[in-house]
Structures are given as structure tokens and as C-alpha cells.
């Protein structure tokens, strides 16, 4: 498949979605059903590979690009993934210009508070999934305590947690 067409199809999928995985139905429709350059098996492998690593959820689009056209396809997928993000630059300029108006500021504050509510709803299932046993519950509590009450860089907490996570595998 032509790389430009691959880019445009993936761009369409990404642009019509507002969160990482909601582009999936469009990707499947275009690449699996209409153009037949991807199998369902490859699509689900792409999703899994995007999930076990770090980074944004939408990354599976890069793996999809790889399945369709190798590394150049992966680059097309990456470009499709980040292109719409730049729309936010004019939005930020516009937002910052009016942020001094009290009512606009009150609206922004309300959105910050609402986003905390959305964050709680995202944190509950994540915490539930992560708490698989005494060790992981301990890591959750330790991470919360360290990050809440110290200024330690988050990165060290992640590295430490990875090492602690290895312990039960190594010392079985």
C-alpha cells in the first residue's frame, strides 16, 4: 500500500477520535475490511504491543503501520498519530488571551476541578488492576507516600518499582 494513502487513512482514524483507542473501529473498517492489507490477528497483536509498553494508548497505530508497510509504515503511523496534536497550539494562544477575564478564569478552574473528578474515575480501575497481591499493594502505597511527601523525581520511583516487581520472579 502507498505510504501517503496509509498515512491519510490512519490520519482520518486518529482525527475522528478523541481518545487513544476510539480510532480502532475506523482503522479496522479501512485496513482490514476495505483494503485488506491487515488481518484481525495482526490488529490485535498491534493493540497488545501498544499496551504492554510505556507511552500513549494510541500507539497501536504505529504497530499497525509496521504490519502494513514495515518501518516506513511505522513512521507513517507515527506522523498520523501526532499530526492532529498541533491543532492545540492556536487553541492555547486563544485560551491564554482570555484567561485574565474573571468569568473565563472561573470556567477554567471549574474544568480543572472536573478533570480531577475524571482522574479519580480513571484511577479506580487502574488501582484495582494494579493491586494483584501484597507486593503490588505495597508498591502502590509506597509510591503514593514517596510522591506525596517528598520531591523525589517520579522516574526513580518507576525504576524502583520495576526492580521490586522483579523480586518475586527472581527469588522464587
Amino acid at each position: 500500500m502507498n505510504l501517503v494513502i496509509l498515512y491519510l487513512l490512519l490520519l482520518k482514524a486518529v482525527t475522528t477520535s478523541f481518545s487513544g483507542m476510539s480510532s480502532l473501529p475506523v482503522v479496522r473498517q479501512d485496513l482490514v475490511e476495505t483494503h485488506r492489507v491487515l488481518t484481525d490477528r495482526e490488529l490485535s497483536t498491534a493493540i497488545a504491543a501498544g499496551r504492554i509498553g510505556p507511552g500513549p494508548n494510541g500507539l497501536y497505530v504505529v504497530s499497525v503501520g509496521y504490519f502494513v508497510a514495515g518501518w516506513p509504515g511505522a513512521v507513517a503511523g507515527l506522523l498520523a498519530l501526532i499530526t492532529p496534536a498541533f491543532l492545540i497550539i492556536p487553541l492555547m494562544k486563544w485560551g491564554a488571551r482570555y484567561a485574565g477575564v474573571p468569568r473565563i478564569r472561573a470556567a477554567i478552574h471549574a474544568v480543572i476541578l472536573a478533570s480531577a473528578g475524571l482522574l479519580i474515575s480513571a484511577s479506580i480501575p487502574l488501582t484495582r488492576d494494579a493491586a494483584a497481591g501484597p507486593l503490588t499493594i505495597g508498591i502502590i502505597a509506597a509510591s503514593f507516600t514517596v510522591l506525596m511527601f517528598t520531591k523525589v523525581e517520579s522516574w526513580w520511583v518507576m525504576i524502583g518499582a520495576a526492580i521490586v516487581g522483579l523480586a518475586p520472579v527472581l527469588f522464587r
Partner: peptide
Amino acid sequence: MGAVAGIIAAVAGMMWTSVW
């Protein structure tokens, strides 16, 4: 998978500090 489970647990703890 062990390392990933550890990191996911640390992330879960971090989320709650972020809410606060």
C-alpha cells in the same frame, strides 16, 4: 511481566497524588 506489574502499581499510587 514482573517489572511491568511493579511499574503499573507505582503509577496507580501516583494517580492519587495527582488528584490531590
